[in-house]
């Protein structure tokens, strides 16, 4: 994102008026290039965001005119709703669970797979990455079938005499949340592994070599060389994982649909249920109420990224600014 100041300085020998028209022409092109994105952004992002705030002040079923302004009543009701707080709690469990399991597990795997001498790395990498490319909603359906009372997993445990009675994985409120976390982590682990590998590969080999010369073993190298150097990328990976955990809709909708008794209802499923289903909402469809919950979910996301961002990025942003010019940019592929 370094600007092109140098360009203008270099070309002072040229005719200045010519240069000015050239720059003007370029600037016009810049606006033309930006126009599609800006238009699309205002129509399809900014407008819906604003409207979702507007809806939240109305009692509205989504059909018919928006005419029943109720001020902050939706927010009041939400903040006193046990079901809403429960969904926030489930979301937090899910976010933390998938981050600890998914990011932590991925780090271990990445360290193993980063070993230069390990054979068939590509094969393992592919296997562990595979769930990432699958459609979450469909995975939810398949997993639901595997973890059913008479599903494959229980039958396996019974066959091996590990248990004598099938375990209700998806209908026990605690187990169901655990299954959601495990499956969510399984689904996302591959992508985190690749992120970690990218980080590990950016560590220069000389550092390992000098560590070896110093007589450091595997664990010492890991502790004193690898992990400290991974810190900046760790912040990014954890943040990405936290944010993706907030949108657990696909998996939860198809795996447990929030049941039993809303015990596994996450915030985004709560919103969907109120917005689109009277059966699973409060007996009425309430777009305004759902929108208010959406605004709170947005604030929740905002707070998480801010708190986390402030905690981990604070120092690095300053560092990054200094490094930018030296560090020739992107090293993709």
């Amino acid at each position: 994102m370094a600007n092109n100041l140098e360009l203008s300085q270099k070309s002072t020998s040229k005719d200045t008026s010519n240069l000015k028209t050239l720059q003007k022409r370029k600037a016009i092109w810049a606006y033309i290039f930006l126009a599609p994105q800006i238009i699309v952004f205002f129509i399809f992002s900014a407008y819906p965001i604003v409207m979702s705030y507007v809806y939240s002040f109305y009692e509205w079923s989504g059909i018919g005119p928006l005419n029943d302004f109720i001020g902050l009543a939706n927010y009041q009701q939400l903040l006193t709703s046990e079901r809403f707080w429960n969904s926030a709690l489930v979301s937090i469990y899910y976010i933390l669970g998938t981050t600890v399991l998914g990011v932590g597990g991925a780090l271990i795997l990445a360290i193993i797979l980063n070993d230069q001498k390990l054979k068939s790395k590509g094969f393992y990498r592919a296997i562990y990455f595979l769930p990432v490319v699958t459609t979450t909603a469909i995975v939810g359906i398949i997993i639901g079938s595997i973890f059913g009372i008479n599903g494959f997993f229980n039958q396996l445990l019974v066959d091996f005499n590990i248990i004598d009675k099938p375990i209700p994985w998806l209908t026990d409120p605690v187990l169901a949340v655990i299954i959601l976390i495990v499956i969510g982590s399984w689904k996302g682990l591959g992508i985190n592994m690749v992120y970690w590998l990218a980080g590990l590969q950016s560590i220069p080999n000389e550092l390992y070599e000098s560590a070896q010369l110093d007589g450091a073993g595997f664990w010492a190298t890991l502790r004193h060389v690898t992990l400290p150097l991974l810190k900046p990328i760790a912040a990014v990976i954890i943040l990405l994982s936290l944010v993706s955990g907030i949108n657990a809709f696909d998996l939860v909708k198809t795996l447990t649909n929030g049941g039993p008794n809303f015990a596994t209802e996450t915030m985004d499923l709560f919103i969907y249920n109120y917005a689109f289903s009277s059966q699973l909402g409060g007996g009425q469809v309430r777009m305004g109420y759902a929108s208010a919950a959406g605004v709170l979910l947005g604030l929740f996301t905002f707070v998480i990224s801010m708190v986390f961002g402030a905690a981990s990025f604070g120092k690095q942003i300053i560092k990054l600014k200094g490094n930018k010019k030296k560090k020739g940019g992107v090293k993709a592929l």
Binding site: S45, Y47, P48, I49, S52, G294, T301
Partner: peptide, 22 residues
């Protein structure tokens, strides 16, 4: 530039409903 970065941090709300209407 500032706007682009700021967009990342705006609380989005539940935009699917207005998007659907749109």
């Amino acid at each position: 530039m500032i706007c682009v970065v700021a967009i990342m941090f705006i609380p989005k709300g539940y935009t699917i409903i207005p998007l659907f209407k749109l």
